[in-house]
Simulated assay, not measured.
Amino acid sequence: MQSPARRDLIADAAITVIAGHGLRGLTHRAVDAAAGLPAGSTSYYARTRAALIELVLSRLLALDLHDAAVADNRPPSLDGPDDVVALGVGYVLNAIGPQRSRALARFELALEATRRPELRATYDRMGAQLREMLTAVMAGVGSADPPRHAWALAAWLEGAVFEATAGAGGANPPDATELTASLGDVLRGLLATVTARH
């Protein structure tokens, strides 16, 4: 019988391998070594490389939802725009700090998905779940167009993470104060359309 804890351990090791060596370095043997498991352990949980990549994507989604305090596919309870800013800044700081390997692995997989339609479908399906959560969050704080504003919020979040990990800003990543000011500007601009349209 497969163990969920062992599956997560393997997925986490695969994320580390991808972040450190790219998708070319992702092999069952490399994941076994990174996880400290006997040879053949990874292939028991993911027979093919495609299955291993899908395992990684599922794990990345689960971790992102956990970090966003999503329970039972419901968005976190937020009292207003300041809470959204705090949640977003926390996400970025986590992604560019202690969970940097997750961000790098996700970017590697996003690029690979541009060349592999079957991976693109999985990547987009999982990304849609996060977008739905952001849409609910924006609706909850009074957005006049939650889907469009969720897209803008997701673009800011991913752009901030990319800039600070793989982009030109990696040498001088922003701190909490800078991120709070920037995301606050973005969110105020989005929510101002409520007044502008009425």
Rank of each mutant, 00 (worst) to 15 (best):
R74G: 00
A105K: 07
R7K: 12
L183S: 02
L104Y: 00
M126I: 06
A19H: 11
L57E: 13
D8I: 08
H149Q: 15
E132M: 10
P4E: 14
D12I: 00
R102A: 04
H149I: 06
R125F: 03
S41W: 06
P81H: 12
N172G: 03
R106C: 01
A181W: 02
T27R: 15
L109P: 03
A46W: 08
V161W: 06
R115V: 04
G169I: 00
R74M: 07
Q99D: 09
L65W: 09
M138L: 13
A19C: 09
G36D: 09
A69K: 07
A30D: 09
A13F: 05
L55W: 10
L104W: 01
T48R: 12
G36C: 11
N172R: 15
L157K: 03
R24C: 03
S41Y: 07
S101K: 10
Q129C: 04
R120W: 14
E108C: 07
L191N: 01
A19I: 09
R116D: 11
L187K: 05
T195G: 01
L93R: 12
G189P: 01
I18H: 14
P147V: 10
N73S: 13
N94R: 15
E178V: 11
L104P: 00
H149F: 06
V194K: 12
R106W: 07
H28E: 01
R188H: 09
P75G: 14
A155Q: 10
T48C: 09
L187F: 05
S143I: 03
G40W: 07
E118C: 02
A196P: 00
W156H: 10
T16A: 15
W151H: 13
A35K: 12
R125E: 13
P98A: 15
V161S: 03
V85F: 05
V194T: 11
D79W: 01
I96Q: 03
P147K: 12
G167I: 02
A33T: 11
L55T: 08
T193M: 05
I53S: 02
P173A: 14
T42E: 10
T180H: 14
H66E: 12
S101V: 03
T16V: 08
L104A: 07
R100G: 01
P174D: 13
G97H: 13
N73P: 00
G25N: 08
P173K: 14
V161C: 06
N73W: 08
A136P: 00
E112A: 15
S143P: 00
V194R: 15
Y45D: 03
A50W: 03
A196H: 05
A110T: 09
V84L: 15
A168I: 04
R102D: 06
P117D: 05
L9V: 00
V186C: 01
R102L: 12
L57F: 09
R59F: 09
T27K: 12
P146C: 03
G169T: 00
T27D: 07
R125S: 11
E158T: 05
H149S: 08
R100N: 00
Y44F: 07
G40L: 12
A181C: 02
